[in-house]
Design a protein around this nucleic acid. Sequence first.
DNA 1: AATGAATGAGGCTTCATTCAT
DNA 2: CATGAATGAAGCCTCATTCAT
Lengths: 199, 199, 199, 199
Amino acid sequence: MARTKGRRQHLMTAAISIFSRYGYHEAGIREIAQEAKCAVGTFYVYFTSKSDVFLALIDALYSAVMDEVMRGRKDLALAEEKLARSLDRVVGTLLQQRDLARVVLVTTLGSEPVVENHLWNIRQTFAELLATQLQECGIPSERAQIGAWAFVGALAEIFSIWARRPEQSLEAMTQGVRDLFWHAWGLRLSSTSSPPSSS
Amino acid sequence: MARTKGRRQHLMTAAISIFSRYGYHEAGIREIAQEAKCAVGTFYVYFTSKSDVFLALIDALYSAVMDEVMRGRKDLALAEEKLARSLDRVVGTLLQQRDLARVVLVTTLGSEPVVENHLWNIRQTFAELLATQLQECGIPSERAQIGAWAFVGALAEIFSIWARRPEQSLEAMTQGVRDLFWHAWGLRLSSTSSPPSSS
Amino acid sequence: MARTKGRRQHLMTAAISIFSRYGYHEAGIREIAQEAKCAVGTFYVYFTSKSDVFLALIDALYSAVMDEVMRGRKDLALAEEKLARSLDRVVGTLLQQRDLARVVLVTTLGSEPVVENHLWNIRQTFAELLATQLQECGIPSERAQIGAWAFVGALAEIFSIWARRPEQSLEAMTQGVRDLFWHAWGLRLSSTSSPPSSS
Amino acid sequence: MARTKGRRQHLMTAAISIFSRYGYHEAGIREIAQEAKCAVGTFYVYFTSKSDVFLALIDALYSAVMDEVMRGRKDLALAEEKLARSLDRVVGTLLQQRDLARVVLVTTLGSEPVVENHLWNIRQTFAELLATQLQECGIPSERAQIGAWAFVGALAEIFSIWARRPEQSLEAMTQGVRDLFWHAWGLRLSSTSSPPSSS
DNA sequence: AATGAATGAGGCTTCATTCAT
DNA sequence: CATGAATGAAGCCTCATTCAT
């Protein structure tokens, strides 16, 4: 599992492990390098700085989520169907990459301006995407906007709780959130449990 | 507003200002002291460490919120009324102390184990309180629990957004969140806009 | 015991207690003041600095020892008798004021240049006095000098040991040292156990 | 003498220099680093703290002394011979490493609990070793114990004096102490001046 | 590409001392 | 005389980053 991935990928995996264990500030490059079984200098061959890995992790999650979302929407026509599929894919991808998701959603806060800005932009992009879809389902602009934000915040909170209490079923909690919002928005269609394509 | 408060209060106000401007790690004791117009050593007369002020801030907000909530419930009988009043008071207090709330809800994350643990405990206490009230309104245990968490996460997200875009109306956003969840829980009673007692 | 002594004396007693418990650097003025049940500022009414109390303690012990030594020599004629009496008085005074002696002999080292210099001078004065007496007993100059130094060093070591192992009999140990040196110097007269006058 | 030693050795030499010049508390890591011509951070690559170097210095001296003592005793049978040789080697090693010895014997006192405890243990170990040998020479237990302590104290005092008055011959003084105690213990054998092996 | 010893700016915290009341 | 809140210089240590090998 390690030999085939490139060094860079290997370092990112190590970073996820260390960051989620210690948090952004407590985590040290030395520890990440150790976890990846290489020297500190090697880290700087693949990343320009500590924040740089973090940005890479954020982008990795973002890409994964977006890929899944986009792929899932192709063959659907109804707005509600699309929204349902989107949420499924988002949640599904986060579940599949739960360690990465935890780092990005929970650990990022309080890291560094550059990193926080980046995540902020992505969260906004995502929230806007969601808000647009909500509007397409007939929800008025302002409510859609607030709803999108609330949904993102709720998801982050769930991962934060799971980070502290791993015995809680992440699946159950995310599903609960999904249902909650689905109901809040007054949508009818039930969850279209089409699993995201395996990575 | 500053001369009459004790030095400790004065320092806490300064801390709110500095923390919300720079975040936990970037904030320095020197800056806090400067903002409070006193020497660095004076800070350590009133607080034992950087994390100590932060804990004090967290507790200050928690106390304020709890006081308001408890005071608001006295004369009410119906479970839904109580819940509505509780939410009003929570949101109301956060709005009144929005700067403090922003620091506690947004800045705390990624600070230090001691601080994060403290906030975590308080958030949990609060979420449980909310969950209990939701159950008293007839919402099944599990949904109540998830709902409480989601509500807390959503509120935090709102403050995070307001921290970045102060031009957004915090009142409108919190009200939006409140309505969203009220609807999600299928409750009837409209918001009982009894403003919290002025401090 | 406290009300009758002046504040200054009271503070010195407190200082002995604190210094012997924590050592020079770990001891704080605040702690000394607390022990003396007065405010920090009051300390600075009677002493100009931390080192100042220490100097006072050193002088107090020095005076006590010298008083006893001088008083004990009056009515003696033989050199060996005088020496014996001197040693008795020195050791006797240290035993009577063992807490003070411990602080001066053990704690002083590594304190501060001013303090160390002062103690050094006193130790030298004392060693020279002893050396002179040894020479009067017929011991050649150089051996007398070395002997005096060694004696002082040995006594200090004994107090250092007693500081760590208070269960050891300080009386027995000092007597042992006295005998050892008495023998080393080839003196005949046995110890003239005339106790020093009580203070 | 500096280029060939490793950085760690180099730093220890610098530490000896600085500590003996300023004492434990007045000595700063910055000064040690400067003396060793490296950055402060480099110091912390080789030692974990200020007390850590000090412990290393103590151990270095202790090892050197013990090595010499043990090596010198191999081919001897008589108890008195062994004792004589031991004292020679101890004194000899301290003379060879006089700067280090001065720091360890004089500067350590009043440093820090950890350091003082360590030195205390080593001094005790050494005193016990000496006491044992004295008993093997027929000196009763208690006198042997006191004698060992007194010897250690006397040696320390000598180094303390030499630290202040470098013009005094350290060789003469230590030899004087050696003779003094030899005589005090009533031993016959003269000093077996076999010099310790050169390092 | 890989290494890891070296760097040094900067942060938190302590505590002897002062001075206005 | 007594007080104790206020002061601020100074010290130890961390850790992201570099660069010669």
